[in-house]
């Protein structure tokens, strides 16, 4: 279904309230992840020896790296669950 240039698809209903809610939710979750990522990068840059501290049989570097990978997935699922959909048939 080709659309004319520069117009959103006609089947997409718009709802400013929903868009605002979703955008704010996205920014909050982004801030959460950004905090973790920045902390991770800064510790490596400033105090890399902390990354070698043992955690069980692993170390901080491995645990933090795995937490960043899994954290992204968890936050993405949270986002998908909490986002609102525009009401259908209300363009």
């Amino acid at each position: 279904m080709p659309h004319a240039d520069h117009t959103p698809p006609p089947d997409e209903p718009r709802d400013p309230g929903v868009e605002r809610h979703n955008a704010r939710l996205g920014l909050v979750l982004f801030a959460v992840y950004l905090t973790g990522y920045v902390a991770f990068v800064l510790v490596i840059a400033v105090a890399p020896e902390w990354m070698g501290v043992p955690v069980g049989r692993l170390n901080v570097a491995l645990v933090a790296g795995l937490a960043l990978l899994l954290g992204a997935v968890v936050l993405a699922v949270v986002y998908a669950l909490l986002c609102r959909e525009p009401a259908k048939g209300n363009p």
Partner: peptide, 13 residues
């Protein structure tokens, strides 16, 4: 880790 983190920007923002 960096390649995946970029997706957080893409999805949330």
């Amino acid at each position: 880790i960096g390649f995946l983190a970029g997706w957080v920007v893409a999805l949330f923002v």
